[in-house]
Design a protein around this nucleic acid. Structure first.
Lengths: 310, 310
DNA sequence: TCGACTCTGTAGGCTCGCTTCATGGACGTG
DNA sequence: CACGTCCATGAAGCGAGCCTACAGAGTCGA
């Protein structure tokens, strides 16, 4: 029962192909293939089987890959204890996630990490909800969102903590007739032209909720992801959009108004692989993120309507 | 954080010297020393320090040795799951312990293992109570005893399960005047010549209890360990001794009588290192031992006095 | 049918870990 | 205090194992 073989199978179960494992571990596919062969010879059972161009784990392979997961978690725990013993907040922490949440989380997080030896490397990834789970393979912490209080789809076997709940508001040009109201109702929106997000992105469910509440279809005239771009378009037109409250700037050409009668909020999660979550530096960054989330929530607790009075 | 280094430190913490580790792992001391050096270089901290002729772990070394313990336990769990998956009851299980308990446990245990692939290798070790803990380094299961319901001394960090409670009786020649009684009182014994056990062996506490109950000193004329030898001497003389009930033969020249007023029993334990206890074959042998203990208890539930009527 | 992609096999080189042999310090004993 | 013993450590050499490079075979999509 060689730990290296368990680790290899774990890697294979996560990455899905010999080539990917090889790339991730800085080796050639041939080397990985040979190790796999050696593992099967030693264990006396086929662990993988051909599947189309690639291959997949057999049931036996899955058993051992699960074992590799356990071993990796314990080793990470030991590493964390070791780092704590030495007072070593070592290394780099790779974080990936939503730019829209990072906008208000990252500045505070970097500030909190100031003076430590932790090197936080952030990659912004704006992908559909279901794709977040794939990011944890390459990153220590993935900042994802979900429109329910449950962790994002595909993260069932991962370690996920909710960082904060961020209301989703209706974005309007300051000159827009609805901007004079403290809040807007679903009925107010059905006649408007919407700037939506690509199908499958979480915010799209807000549109579906409005349609469900009114029984009418909404005219989505654009579908785009970048919130700054959407803001610019909203500011310069009579179109409306859905934007997260904390991210978006207050008090210039664009105003945010709560959507009355529909509970609209996104839940920001930090998602990690269990073994990565054990690392001391990762736990430290996670704590910084939670602190940043708390601050952000406190600072923006006021509704945008209240802000509008200033 | 190399798993091999953790394993090495764990081994070193258990065995205490480079030479011992080398012997246990079938390598030369030089190889072990070099690995140790490599580990220290990689981890950037001294892990061992000279202590007299040998060396001992530094605090840092102890932290990592503890981590090695955790890893070993998880790896053993994985191995057990793997064996269960394959239906493999593999390998040999090394058991050591008291011959006096093995006498009635082992025959049934071997019978229960009949037909399996498990190879049970037993070593009989009759040592003082405190030395049992050392045996788990070399054996998978150690059968030990204690005169209290608590596990034997020195097994605090080990996995221990009680197999059975075995009364301790007074052994007498069939011709001995006290043999006519159903049981004997402490006062009856103070005038007798005793065959005891070496100081530090558990049964000696029975003598101490009798002395405490009567306020008189007992004349211990011999101190020996082997129960068969003691039986032979008791049968051929007027001397008395303390013998465990299940081990000793019934209905020949020696009779056993309960000691009234003093709760005398030894508790037979199976003691294991946590990682060894995870092995499927070890768990199987342990189950067989428990079954054997249950049978033995049921078969000998009758008091020797009741037997004496037959 | 061709090209792109993936896994596998072979040959060769290199690294790593082990053994052998020798050295030096620590302890106990005469 | 000198000697033998025990333990750890160092240098040199060797061998197994692992990796790379390259080529071949199978699969899928255009």
């Amino acid at each position: 029962m060689d730990v290296r073989h368990l680790e290899l199978l774990r890697e294979l179960s996560v990455r899905g192909s010999v080539t990917e494992v090889a790339r991730a571990t800085h080796r050639t596919p041939s080397a990985v293939s040979q190790q796999l062969r050696a593992a099967q010879r030693e264990l006396g059972t086929p662990l993988v089987e051909p599947a189309g161009r690639g291959l997949r784990l057999t049931p036996a392979g899955h058993v051992l890959a699960g074992g590799g997961e356990d071993v990796a978690r314990v080793v990470a725990q030991v590493q964390a204890r070791w780092d704590a013993f030495r007072g070593h907040l070592s290394g780099t922490v790779a974080v990936a996630g939503l730019p829209s949440a990072a906008t208000y989380l990252l500045p505070r997080t970097f500030a909190a990490l100031e003076g430590t030896e932790i090197d936080l490397v952030f990659t912004d990834e704006d992908v559909a909800e279901s794709a977040y789970a794939d990011l944890v393979v390459e990153h220590d912490i993935v900042i994802a969102h979900s429109l329910t209080q449950l962790a994002p789809a595909g993260t069932e076997r991962l370690f996920a903590v909710e960082l904060l709940r961020e209301p989703l508001d209706v974005a309007l040009s300051a000159e827009h007739p609805l901007a004079a109201r403290a809040d807007v109702r679903p009925e107010d929106l059905v006649d408007q032209e919407w700037i939506g997000v690509p199908i499958g992105f979480p915010f799209d469910t807000v549109r579906l909720a409005v349609e469900a509440a009114t029984g009418k279809r909404i005219r989505v005239v654009q579908r785009m992801r970048d919130n700054r771009l959407i803001e610019a378009l909203v500011a310069a037109s009579a179109k409306v959009a859905v934007l997260p409250r904390f991210t978006s700037p207050q008090g210039n050409d664009v105003v945010l108004r709560p959507l009355r009668g529909i509970s609209t909020a996104r839940h920001i999660f930090a998602v990690m692989r269990p073994d990565r979550a054990e690392r001391l530096a990762v736990r430290h960054v996670l704590a910084a993120l939670r602190g940043a989330a708390e601050e952000a929530t406190r600072d923006r607790a006021a509704t945008p309507a209240a802000d509008a009075h200033t």
